[in-house]
């Protein structure tokens, strides 16, 4: 991703669904560099639960066999942007688990560029969004597999639940593959909560918001499975779900 000096417009691919007015208030976005040396293991948990606009840009470089576990919970900002560029050397492993929980006219975006530069590196991205009101949740994810990065396994799983017909989900996975023996599973789905399941739960006594929250809790949990701070993330997600339902 090239440096963007001036405030971008929506013509810029990486900002096509951004709230440009809100972005102006947090521009320019500082690059946060993270380097994990060969064989190193690190994790980072980001919980955005304030109402203020926030935008972050992480640039992560993973050495041979290095691992990085990134979890993101966007739960509150009027505008929340997380851009992540990751470069993986041979045998490195990158996990992203992100949940976007929005309502009102909030705009949330996760923008990733994952570059597999060495042999047999693995990346898994799971993004789950629950969008109410007029909110917008976006995932733009580019995966680049460089020449010689054979044996790459790059997975993207992106699912959004629209809690109101007025909410919008955008999901755009992109693949550029210049290597052999590459696995690149990607699934994107936008849906609504299963009406049969909701009635079943309500017929047992749960109120409509309780039934929705229980189903969404399970849906979102997929983004946090195996995280070092799984319990804390789930708790924060539940608190947010209770607000937006």
């Amino acid at each position: 991703m090239s440096e963007v000096a001036a405030l971008p417009t929506r013509k810029h691919e990486d900002f096509r669904y951004s709230d440009i007015d809100a972005l102006a208030g947090v521009w320019p976005i500082a690059r946060e560099e993270i380097v994990v040396a060969d064989g190193g293991e690190e994790s980072l948990q980001i919980v955005e639960d304030g109402a203020e606009a926030v935008a972050r840009h992480l640039v992560i470089s993973l050495g041979k066999g290095a691992k990085f576990d990134l979890r993101v919970l966007s739960a509150g900002p009027v505008y929340g942007r997380i851009a992540v560029d990751v470069r993986l050397a041979e045998g490195a492993d990158f996990t992203l688990g992100a949940a976007q929980l929005a309502t009102g006219s909030e705009t949330l975006e996760v923008v990733t560029e994952v570059t597999h530069a060495g042999l047999n590196a693995t990346s898994h991205q799971i993004v789950r969004s629950a969008l109410a009101g007029h909110s917008v949740g976006t995932y733009l994810g580019r995966i680049a597999v460089e020449r010689g990065a054979d044996g790459t396994d790059a997975e993207q799983s992106v699912r959004a639940m629209l809690l109101d017909r007025t909410a919008t989900a955008n999901a755009r996975p992109e693949l550029e593959i210049y290597a052999d023996d590459v696995k690149a599973a990607h699934g994107c789905a936008v849906g609504e909560l299963d009406a049969n399941g909701l009635f079943y739960l309500m017929s047992r006594g749960l109120t409509p918001p309780e039934a929705k929250r229980l189903m969404l809790q399970a849906f979102i949990a997929e983004a946090f499975t195996g995280a070092p701070g799984e319990a804390e993330l789930s708790e924060a997600a539940i608190a947010r779900l209770e607000q937006i339902l």
Binding site: L201, R204, M215
Partner: peptide, 17 residues
Amino acid sequence: PVEIPGVSFVQFLREAA
């Protein structure tokens, strides 16, 4: 009866009760 992935009976029934 409806299948609800990710939600355990124990959790669901305690909340329901």
